Lab assay of single mutants.
Amino acid sequence: MEVRTIKVFTTVDNINLHTQVVDMSMTYGQQFGPTYLDGADVTKIKPHNSHEGKTFYVLPNDDTLRVEAFEYYHTTDPSFLGRYMSALNHTKKWKYPQVNGLTSIKWADNNCYLATALLTLQQIELKFNPPALQDAYYRARAGEAANFCALILAYCNKTVGELGDVRETMSYLFQHANLDSCKRVLNVVCKTCGQQQTTLKGVEAVMYMGTLSYEQFKKGVQIPCTCGKQATKYLVQQESPFVMMSAPPAQYELKHGTFTCASEYTGNYQCGHYKHITSKETLYCIDGALLTKSSEYKGPITDVFYKENSYTTTIK
């Protein structure tokens, strides 16, 4: 009895394709271990004539594949690729409408935090270190965002349907971005203890939790000093293409032309909904596939993004 075979390709990165001759009487799992086709788990399936010449994702289970996976995804987590594939199996079914010149995501599976993050990423200057993220990001900007969303979920250790947080998501993504040249110098002034300067680099240099107003941050924000008295913390120097200011959701007025974009969060910790506000020729609110415009805006804002380049204080 002759062994019926077909020729397929296996890959971990969709760049390096490895030619395989597979036995049609055995499952993919018996031949390769966990195997995925377009995100779908085909591990328990036997090869079919229609699979001839198709590319299958496999887990990096030998040295060659491990090197290829690390170079593309910059992670050695053995569960990463499987999590990416199972997320992709959902995100490829989502709709990605162009809204006001940006790629958004039609609401499904509690994905409003991903839509808000995706919209924000198209408006701030950011370059990702893992080629996987950078490639998928370019495709997302062009309207094909399924891979990018699935990668975000995998890097953030999230599953489809789980509630997510924009600030946490951005923080994970910033860790995989090139923020080497970003720098922030802060000064804390206390009447009792004097003053202390701190220099922050990388992710810490672009994120701040405690106030939404970048102007206020430049002037000074009140913080408790270690001595128990009130101290003032203010920005001395900022070198970065953008800054992200966050605070627990509270009524906040966004003035046209003073910011790049913002995240609105309605609801409580267990259950809520994100919308995205962007400042173009007027203010726009993007909620999944829905767009509304207004000249002014007041609502429960939790993150505001500002364009920056270089700032030095005039406070002496």
Rank of each mutant, 00 (worst) to 15 (best):
E2W: 15
E2Y: 11
E2N: 14
F9N: 15
F9C: 09
F9H: 15
T10E: 01
T11Y: 01
V12P: 06
D13S: 01
N14I: 00
N16P: 01
H18N: 14
T19C: 08
T19S: 15
Q20I: 11
V21M: 13
V22K: 00
V22T: 08
D23G: 10
D23N: 11
D23F: 12
M24D: 09
M26P: 10
M26F: 14
T27E: 15
G29T: 00
G29S: 04
Q30V: 11
Q30E: 03
Q31S: 08
G33I: 02
G33V: 00
P34Q: 09
P34F: 13
T35I: 12
T35Q: 06
L37P: 00
L37T: 08
D38N: 12
G39M: 06
A40R: 12
V42H: 06
V42F: 10
V42S: 04
T43A: 09
I45K: 12
K46L: 01
P47W: 00
H48K: 15
N49A: 09
S50V: 09
H51Q: 12
H51T: 00
E52M: 11
K54M: 10
T55N: 12
F56M: 12
Y57I: 11
Y57G: 01
Y57A: 08
V58F: 03
V58D: 00
V58L: 09
V58A: 05
P60H: 07
N61M: 15
D62S: 14
D62N: 15
T64R: 14
L65W: 07
L65A: 10
V67A: 15
V67F: 15
V67L: 13
E68M: 11
E68V: 09
A69E: 11
A69H: 15
A69D: 07
F70W: 12
F70L: 11
F70Q: 09
E71Q: 10
E71L: 12
Y73R: 00
H74V: 03
H74L: 01
H74C: 08
T75D: 04
T75Y: 00
T76D: 15
S79A: 06
F80C: 00
F80Q: 00
L81I: 15
R83C: 06
Y84Q: 07
M85Y: 11
M85A: 07
S86E: 15
A87R: 02
A87S: 06
N89V: 14
H90Y: 12
H90F: 04
T91H: 00
K92Y: 06
K93S: 11
W94E: 00
W94R: 00
W94D: 01
K95W: 06
K95T: 11
Y96C: 02
Y96A: 06
P97K: 07
P97F: 08
Q98N: 09
V99F: 15
N100C: 13
G101P: 02
L102S: 05
T103Q: 02
T103Y: 10
S104F: 04
I105T: 05
K106I: 07
W107K: 14
W107L: 12
A108T: 11
D109T: 02
N110F: 01
N111S: 01
N111L: 00
N111Q: 00
C112A: 15
Y113I: 03
Y113M: 04
L114Q: 01
L114G: 05
A115L: 07
T116F: 04
T116Q: 14
A117R: 02
L118V: 08
L118W: 02
L119T: 04
T120I: 10
L121V: 14
L121R: 06
Q123L: 03
Q123H: 04
Q123A: 00
P130H: 02
Q134D: 06
Q134K: 13
D135W: 00
D135H: 15
D135L: 08
D135C: 07
A136D: 00
A136W: 05
Y137V: 04
Y138E: 15
R139N: 08
R141V: 15
G143I: 02
E144S: 14
A145E: 02
A145N: 01
A146Q: 07
A146S: 13
C149L: 12
A150C: 00
A150F: 01
L151S: 01
L151T: 01
L153A: 01
L153K: 15
L153Q: 02
C156E: 02
C156V: 08
C156K: 04
N157V: 00
K158T: 05
T159G: 09
V160I: 15
E162Y: 04
L163K: 15
V166D: 02
V166I: 07
V166P: 03
M170H: 00
S171F: 08
S171W: 14
Y172V: 05
Y172F: 13
Y172H: 13
L173Y: 00
L173K: 03
F174G: 00
F174S: 05
Q175K: 14
A177L: 10
S181C: 11
R184T: 05
V185Y: 07
V185C: 05
N187C: 15
V189H: 08
C190K: 05
C190Y: 01
C190G: 00
C190T: 03
T192C: 02
G194R: 08
Q195N: 12
Q196H: 05
Q197R: 14
T198D: 11
T198R: 14
T199R: 13
T199V: 12
L200I: 15
L200P: 04
L200R: 08
K201P: 06
V203M: 15
V203E: 12
V203R: 13
E204K: 08
E204A: 09
A205T: 05
A205G: 04
V206F: 05
V206M: 06
V206Y: 06
Y208G: 06
M209H: 15
M209F: 12
M209C: 12
G210D: 02
G210I: 05
T211I: 10
T211N: 07
T211L: 08
Y214R: 05
E215I: 07
E215A: 03
Q216L: 09
K218C: 08
G220L: 03
G220M: 03
G220F: 02
I223F: 07
C225N: 06
C225W: 01
C225M: 02
T226A: 11
C227R: 03
C227D: 05
C227N: 01
Q230L: 14
A231K: 10
T232W: 13
T232C: 08
K233S: 13
K233H: 13
Y234H: 06
Y234R: 09
Y234C: 12
V236M: 08
Q237M: 07
Q237D: 09
Q237I: 11
Q237A: 09
S240H: 09
S240V: 03
P241W: 01
P241S: 15
F242W: 07
V243E: 14
M244G: 08
M244E: 07
S246A: 04
A247Q: 09
P248N: 14
P248S: 11
Q251H: 10
Y252A: 11
E253L: 14
E253M: 12
E253V: 14
L254D: 01
K255L: 09
H256S: 14
G257C: 06
T258V: 08
T258W: 00
T258F: 08
F259G: 06
T260H: 06
C261N: 03
C261M: 06
A262V: 06
S263P: 04
S263W: 00
Y265I: 06
Y265E: 06
G267Y: 12
N268T: 15
N268F: 06
Y269D: 15
Q270C: 14
Q270L: 12
C271G: 14
G272H: 11
H273Q: 04
H273V: 01
H273D: 00
H273W: 07
H273A: 09
Y274C: 12
Y274Q: 03
K275V: 07
K275P: 05
T278E: 06
T278F: 07
T278C: 09
S279E: 03
S279K: 03
K280C: 08
E281H: 06
T282L: 10
T282S: 14
L283V: 12
Y284F: 01
Y284H: 09
Y284Q: 13
I286A: 06
I286K: 05
D287M: 05
A289V: 09
L291C: 14
L291E: 11
L291T: 13
T292K: 13
K293A: 12
S294D: 08
S295N: 13
E296W: 13
E296Q: 11
Y297W: 11
K298N: 12
G299K: 03
G299H: 05
P300Y: 13
I301K: 04
T302Y: 04
T302Q: 07
V304H: 04
F305S: 07
Y306F: 05
Y306P: 06
Y306M: 06
K307F: 06
S310I: 13
T313V: 10
T313H: 14
T314V: 15
I315K: 08
I315A: 13
K316I: 12
